[in-house]
């Protein structure tokens, strides 16, 4: 569904992505793991249209999207839940969710998805009038996921959704990702928490200083000695 081919990203003089190529097939969970500074966020941000200084191809459902604005990319069906959640602390939970649906015109569909998101995350419904900033870290992550789902995008990109959460919540987040996938969404997942990510991923890529160094199924990479040494703590 998404093909990234020979993607290069530059920050001033820094060559952050060096010819990255990945494939995200429809209906799958694909994960991208790698150390700090490897270029995982840069990859997602480039796909989302936030990085202008880039070269290469990004094709979604067969058409080139690398020149589109972030707004058009959301409209074409790709949404990103950015690193650090980035919910709007001064807006109510409901407004945060509505913002996720900002690019949509189908009012009835938005209301339907709002109900659906509340079913997935009942805690958000209980707190819908509360300011986003007053939620706990775990609840904020649920809000960030719910907000992404509100866009009705088919491809959901998640940048370190388990960051800073207690182990129990981390498990919950990964369960939710599996649920979202089971409901038909394609997921591109960036994680530091390599083991958990590889366990739920159909396909996985290992990124090192801007380039893919290993690829395979989640199971294959869990078994791979290089991955075990570098990312799974031996």
């Amino acid at each position: 569904m998404l093909e990234v081919q020979d993607l290069n990203v530059f920050y001033g003089g820094i060559h952050a992505l060096k010819g990255l190529t990945i494939q995200v097939p429809q209906g799958r969970v694909v994960t991208l793991i790698g150390a700090n500074g490897a270029g995982k966020s840069s990859t997602l941000r480039a796909i989302a249209g936030l990085i202008r200084n880039k070269k290469g191809h990004i094709r979604y459902r067969g058409s080139e999207i690398s020149g589109l604005s972030p707004v058009d990319i959301v409209k074409s069906g790709i949404v990103m839940a950015p690193e650090g959640r980035k919910i709007f602390p001064h807006l109510s939970v409901l407004d945060n969710l509505r913002l996720g649906a900002y690019a949509r015109k189908d009012k009835a569909g938005v209301e339907k998805d709002l109900k659906w998101v509340y079913e997935l995350f009942p805690r958000l419904e209980d707190r819908k009038d509360q300011k986003g900033g007053t939620l706990s870290g775990g609840e904020q992550q649920m809000l960030a996921l719910g907000r992404a789902l509100m866009s009705a995008a088919d491809l959901i990109m998640l940048d370190e959704p388990s960051l800073g959460l207690a182990p129990k919540l981390v498990r919950e987040v990964f369960e939710i990702i599996a649920t979202i996938n089971a409901l038909g969404k394609t997921v591109l997942l960036v994680e530091q928490n390599a083991f958990a990510a590889l366990k739920i991923a159909h396909h996985a890529y290992v990124l090192e200083v801007g380039a893919i160094v290993l690829a395979g199924s989640g199971e294959e990479l869990i078994a791979d000695s290089r991955v075990r040494d570098a990312y799974l703590g031996g």
Binding site: A48, G49, P70, P82, H90, L91, L99, Y102, S151
Partner: peptide, 23 residues
């Protein structure tokens, strides 16, 4: 209004508003 929601959002975080689809 929806435009007002967009205003309140971008006053806090332009980039995130952008990827949510706010023009």
């Amino acid at each position: 209004t929806k435009a007002g929601l967009g205003m309140r959002a971008i006053s806090k975080d332009i980039e995130t508003s952008y990827i949510m689809g706010v023009s």
